[in-house]
Simulated scan of single mutants.
Amino acid sequence: MIKQLFKRNKKRKYVSIEQKKEIDVPEGIMIKCDSCKKIMYSKEVIKNNHVCYNCDYHMMMTAHDRIESVIDKGTFEELFEHITSVNPLNFPKYEEKINKDQKKTNLKEACITGVGEINGSKTAIGVMDAHFIMGSMGSAVGEKITRIIEHATANQLPFILFTASGGARMQEGILSLMQMAKTSVALKKHDEAGLLYIAYLTHPTTGGVSASFASVGDINISEPGALIGFAGRRIIEQTIGEDLPDDFQTAEFLLEHGMLDMVVHRKDMKKTLGQILELHTTNDQGGEMRC
């Protein structure tokens, strides 16, 4: 009997490398969390608004997913979708990069703009997508954002902008940097009309975007753990000659130092925006703010 316990199981099957390749899980079914490295079913992560259900890490969302999660079904109307980038400085292989990302992301540019409703409240909205050339802001992105702000002003609508960007697009040089001023002027006119602007900063929001329209909201909101800043951490440390706190340039750090009004979990995103919009909507009967 003792011999039977230590007897090698001759029926055990060993799988070769070639056989393993044949039984690999198809691409796209599983996803790994960038924070805790847990491997999860993609469908479950999508149902959870792209938030890791193990460590609560907020993964980057596409612009399409963001709109689907926050805008009431069937109410979104895209505007200015025809605006796309050109190559004004004849930067080498810039058109190839744009075409490649257009195919990869199913986007024409690094942001989507339009109008829709959030819990019944109509609003203009812009959503940047870091999957398209890292959400960088070129002339087309700046023009789309400016036009949707002007549309909101002309139609007396609040405006919500979800930011996600690596900053200004280097391939367009000074033309890209000019978008910082152009969008800020449009927002100033929107403000002078007495209208609401909500800046919703998501991971990552850096460079020229963080230094312009992402930082001037009437209400500035972010998601847990989002990276928000202008220059990179290493550059700042080299410049000032000091080590920075571990949580420097995180949403929580900015909230603590008065740069944000609130940090909202993604599961509460639509509810929070709906409440803010409702509070700032004019009562048609009494003509007073419902605050």
Rank of each mutant, 00 (worst) to 15 (best):
V15E: 13
E18S: 13
P26W: 09
G28Y: 10
C33R: 07
C36A: 04
K43P: 01
E44W: 04
V45F: 08
K47R: 14
C52A: 04
Y53V: 01
Y57L: 01
H58A: 10
M60C: 12
A63F: 08
H64Q: 14
I67Y: 03
I67C: 07
E78L: 05
E78H: 01
L79I: 09
F80N: 11
E81N: 09
I83G: 15
S85W: 00
N87W: 04
P92S: 05
P92T: 03
K93E: 15
K93D: 15
Y94F: 15
E96H: 05
K97E: 15
I98S: 09
N99F: 05
N99R: 12
K100S: 11
K103W: 03
K103L: 13
K104V: 05
N106Y: 09
L107V: 07
K108V: 04
K108N: 14
E109Q: 13
E109M: 03
A110F: 01
G114W: 05
G116M: 06
I118H: 07
N119H: 02
S121P: 00
T123D: 02
I125P: 07
I125C: 07
A130M: 09
G135P: 04
G135K: 12
S136A: 14
S139H: 00
A140L: 04
V141H: 07
E143W: 02
I148K: 07
